[in-house]
Design a protein around this nucleic acid. Sequence first.
DNA 1: TCATTAGTGAACGGTTGCGTTCACAACTGT
DNA 2: ACAGTTGTGAACGCAACCGTTCACTAATGA
Lengths: 182, 182
Amino acid sequence: MLEQAIFQATLDELVASGYARLSMEAVAAGAQTGKAAVYRRWASKEELVLSAMRAMLPPVGPVPDTGSLRGDLLELMRSARSAMLSLPGSAVRVIMGELDQERARPFLGLMHECVMDPGKAAVLEVLRRGTGRGEVRPEAVTPLVADVAPALMLYRAKMQGPPTDADVVALVDEVLLPLVRA
Amino acid sequence: MLEQAIFQATLDELVASGYARLSMEAVAAGAQTGKAAVYRRWASKEELVLSAMRAMLPPVGPVPDTGSLRGDLLELMRSARSAMLSLPGSAVRVIMGELDQERARPFLGLMHECVMDPGKAAVLEVLRRGTGRGEVRPEAVTPLVADVAPALMLYRAKMQGPPTDADVVALVDEVLLPLVRA
DNA sequence: TCATTAGTGAACGGTTGCGTTCACAACTGT
DNA sequence: ACAGTTGTGAACGCAACCGTTCACTAATGA
């Protein structure tokens, strides 16, 4: 289907060129169609990218419940890593990287809604469950603490490249567990 | 001096348009000079931006030594916040935001050398001093832990806008101190 | 004063991309 | 078969920008 091909090409272009330099011409070429077909559906680059992101970001999965805090955090972070390394995840990283720029500001709401808020909610749920088991000190269950893992993963991915599974284990064992334990 | 004006305009343009869309014409116009004068000194946009960043980033200040871990961390993070909110700091954030893109890859070395490595070294020194005082558990003195603060500050700045002093205090008290304490 | 250097503003030829239009072909549904 | 819809590839006029060149002016130093 043509719309699917256009969305796919949009994400490819985002990852290759960033939002700032993404061009409708390149997207149309990547989808093997003409500009007219793209403009018939979306009036602007912004509209197209918003639609492509909404359509291509996977639904949020269930919050893991392994019976232990470490187990939950590991599963959550492995799932986050996996999302990060996917095409939609890579496109999200591009957009987030450009959020300091005025041009990408319209994407802030989408990033909150589809990426950050669900991720934060999942971490908070795991932490709450941990307080019930006496594994987590209650004062650690805050939005700020819940932001530590995504922040670190994004930052380290920029500095060193894609995170490994060992990176995920280190994040949980060296940062998250010491930070939240009772 | 003309070079100073060109560097200033370069940073202004970085913050306004990002690296991807920064143009030599806009830089020249911002410096109230002509393209020929810019090209006489720098062969490319990359060269210009590398030079401007090297010239305009302030030297790293001394590592605070207040006598207490909390005091040191607060001073360090206040200083980081202040740097972040400056023009060079804003330009650094733009470059870092684009590091996932091939085009900005040449800046990775500079970012490590002038921004990340010195910041990390300062945090590690403060932590090491804290182990000496029995305030910090020795296993917390790692590069990963030292990345928590910059990562969180950048992430939160994107999500919510410029950090306040209260944000800095919360970062120290809710995240850093619980994370590293003995 | 004169020679040299540097800067200015404009212009050049070329590239990329925008948003739009168009003639024609292909597809779909009645 | 016919009418309506959609897509294709090309073209349009315009804008922005590139890297370079140029005639002239201004500044500097001997």
